[in-house]
Amino acid sequence: MALFRLQGSRVLAVDLTDDAVKARNGSMVAYTGKMTFKRLTGGGEGLRGLVTRRVTGESMTVMEVKGFGTCFFAESAAEINLVRLDGEKLYVEASNLLCTEATLRTGTSFTGLRGASEGHGLFTTTVEGSGQAALTSAGPAVVLRVTPQTPLSVDPGAYVAHTGNLRQHFQSGVNWRTFAGEASGEAFQIRFEGDGLVYVQPSERVTVGGQI
């Protein structure tokens, strides 16, 4: 079974013994032992979502890495966050998913308005099954628990991922006014309600709606 561990906070080390992981194409920085690489495009369980969704026009591809030894992954000096799934479903921004065990299923989920506000399209990547996944974030992610008594509001640009049974909806944050009293735009947050965990990064992607 593939073993995920951190080499420092920005490098993912995966020990492989003739098993496989799926990782973002080009994220391998070094390896020991013997590895084979295979490009995965289009096919498979919802991987087409991963490939085509990005509004930036840059298509994201996924590779399968298989072999014996240790493979090191990193992505533009981003922090790595390990997530262990025991049957639940992880929702994650496609650009934040670095690597998953091959046993985990990846797919896409319609998220509606939230995605639109982020300029990230209308879909979020989902990861399901039992095993480990590695997420990237700009700065180490803070993991925040949501309970029915304590809903959470998040800047859309700082949202990375969530698990659990959560409802999300848009909420208006602030009305910008100039000193003359004229409205100068409005900011939005995502409000999470229910039971679950939300991963938030200490940084904000450029968004249309955020900016508090």
């Binding site: 925040l144 809903p151 509001s153 998040v154 800047d155 602030v174 910008w176 006014r177 939300v198 938030v200």
Partner: peptide, 11 residues
Amino acid sequence: IAYYGQIDFHG
């Protein structure tokens, strides 16, 4: 980036 509780933001 995130908050719990009843918080309003005013320009």
